[in-house]
Design a protein around this nucleic acid. Structure first.
Lengths: 110, 110
DNA sequence: CCAAGTACTTTGTATGGCAAAGTAAACGGG
DNA sequence: CCCGTTTACTTTGCCATACAAAGTACTTGG
């Protein structure tokens, strides 16, 4: 019963999960940036297999939420967009991971 | 590098994640049913803190997807809706858990 | 016998994801 | 040097769907 309470508690937190992070496309981006310090848009395009349109709009949303920093520069003559997680972004991912991992704990199978 | 490949592989699976399961409200319902054999609507209402409207529409969607069985009966004179995971529902949860847990593995922090 | 409560379902709205089209600059052939 | 192609994105538009609010049907208590 106490165990059920804990499980239920973890589940209820799902209701308030950060939707910005929860979206699969953005979670991919965030998890990649989490382990890599910085990456350019082309790398993310390949790693996520998103279209340019989706990548762009999701990055905009992440920027808007303050979770990633976007650094538009040039590599030689070509435009090059570098992306980096902010502190808030890193915290958001940590929170999300904690919430989801708690919620996905196997309940005493019966 | 080999490690990065594995990580990336796990992440890319996120793109095809089952949206029926991924929605927090429905994931709550599914995880509760996963460990409990059957539950009535009122119990789910309390456990999830959803409104009747939300609970009803999410349950409909889960039924439509073939993930839960809905058994409308009576307890005395009062209508009583009993819910149960189907085999497909259990498999969907297993798949989802595997995908998410792989994706949320901590990348070698740097 | 009717007002209030219980147990839902249906409808409406507004957000948001994805795709397709659009834009801007650089390269490359004629 | 011009013009089509490629690269690197951004913007627009449509459609799905999540959540809330209102509606429905039956039952119980006064």
């Amino acid at each position: 019963m106490a165990k059920d309470r804990t499980q239920a508690q973890g589940l209820r937190e799902l209701g308030g999960v950060d939707r910005v992070v929860h979206e699969p496309a953005r979670l991919m981006i965030l998890m990649i940036l989490y382990g890599v310090r910085e990456a350019d848009a082309l790398f993310l395009l390949n790693a996520t297999e998103l279209t340019w349109g989706n990548l762009s709009s999701h990055v905009s949303k992440l920027e808007e939420a303050g979770y990633v920093e976007v650094d538009k520069g040039f590599a030689g003559k070509k435009p090059r967009t570098m992306l980096r997680l902010t502190g808030a972004g890193r915290r958001a991912v940590d929170d999300y991971r904690a919430t989801m991992q708690a919620a996905l704990k196997k309940p005493g199978a019966r």
